[in-house]
Design a protein around this nucleic acid. Structure first.
Lengths: 203, 203
DNA sequence: AACTTAACGGGATTGGTGTCCCGTTAGTTG
DNA sequence: CAACTAACGGGACACCAATCCCGTTAAGTT
């Protein structure tokens, strides 16, 4: 899809192009909330955004392309890790952040759409990987600080700890499709912590 | 979808109907391997199965319906838990089974399709939940035996332990789309075990 | 073996998605 | 501020999935 390369490095990035993109991404999110990824049609997005259908096809090519662009937009918004002073507090903050995000109507629909898009489009899959890589890297800092403070053993794989906290939440969200509650988040934190303290995350 | 209720409790379940169903499910799996869930068209399935297109629409209604029926078929095939004598061996057997399943061309494609179908169809989501509930229940027995043997503390939530072992694997498969290797499986086993031994799975 | 009817199959029809063509709009440049 | 052209927009068109109609096949019944 070299349509997306155009999105990234537009030849003429001035006012109108940017306005159109903003309107289209906004409309995409609205449609995702209402109909989900599978119900996302280029036609409706164009109409909702008040732009020509041709334009949407030209620049994004497919529903997956729309979601991919939305994803890169979200990826650019940094979410720095919490610093509550203890690794337990930091991991809890992370787990609750995921919990709130997937339960929020707007963000939750977008997250699910991102995952659905990744199952049918390689570009979307790459964007999703990049998105989570960045998120995990940002939060890994909290684990590294904990190691320095002596809360966790030396050699603990920081990124794996962060992944381990959210894995059960996404497992419920995507695979078993059970509710992702704060209680589930807390249990995930405690289990991950127990394993980490026991040295199970040493590379 | 009362089409599916017909599949389950067919009025005339004799030879032809069963033959058609077998041929269609077979063709569905073939198509999934080749094109994935999003490339699954009723038309091609009908052609590959050598049955009328009308029949496929009548009985299954949509690609999601096809995958849902395939899922119930797989759910009926029991996969009794291993009994290696130690909880570590049993959990390892479970993790490796998941690992092999998702990496197997045929089964892996079906698993991914099941998850994709669940994201866009409520019936499929229910079938997926039922599928995993059954699988988890069967393997929970291994954990209960381990508790009786004294390998894990009393009160350990058996089903949660099984879920915890596979969560990181599915997380990689669906969310970050990284390879699911035997090494990843082993790490998941060790971390889950460490947490379980520390009592983090006591309800 | 004759009868009934559930289930299947072929072919026509339709509705909507995705593409194409070409005129218009509005950033950009000098 | 005038010329240039990237990007947009409307409308026509092609194509394919999904539905419908109705005749045919074969499972189940007596």
């Amino acid at each position: 899809m070299e349509q997306l390369s155009r999105v990234a490095g537009t030849v003429r990035p001035g006012g109108r192009t940017a306005r159109v993109r903003a309107a289209v991404l906004q409309a995409t999110q609205d449609e995702l909330v209402e109909h989900g990824f599978h119900g996302l049609t280029m036609d409706q997005v164009a109409a909702a955004a008040g732009v020509g259908k041709t334009t949407v096809y030209r620049r994004w090519g497919s529903p997956a392309g729309l979601v991919t662009d939305l994803m890169t937009e979200l990826a650019d918004q940094s979410s720095p890790h919490a610093d509550t002073g203890s690794i337990e507090g930091d991991l809890r903050a992370n787990a609750l952040a995921v919990c709130e995000a997937v339960n929020d109507g707007r963000l939750g629909a977008t997250f699910q759409a991102m995952i659905a898009a990744a199952t049918c489009d390689e570009q979307a899959a790459n964007a999703l990987r990049a998105f989570y890589r960045r998120r995990v890297e940002e939060w890994a800092g909290a684990v590294e600080l904990a190691v320095e403070r002596g809360e966790l053993p030396k050699g603990t794989d920081a990124m794996e700890v962060i992944r381990a906290v959210s894995a059960p939440l996404y497992y419920r969200l995507v695979v078993t499709r059970e509710p992702v509650t704060p209680e589930v988040a807390e249990r995930s934190v405690q289990r991950t912590l127990a394993a980490a303290r026991a040295g199970a995350f040493i590379a």
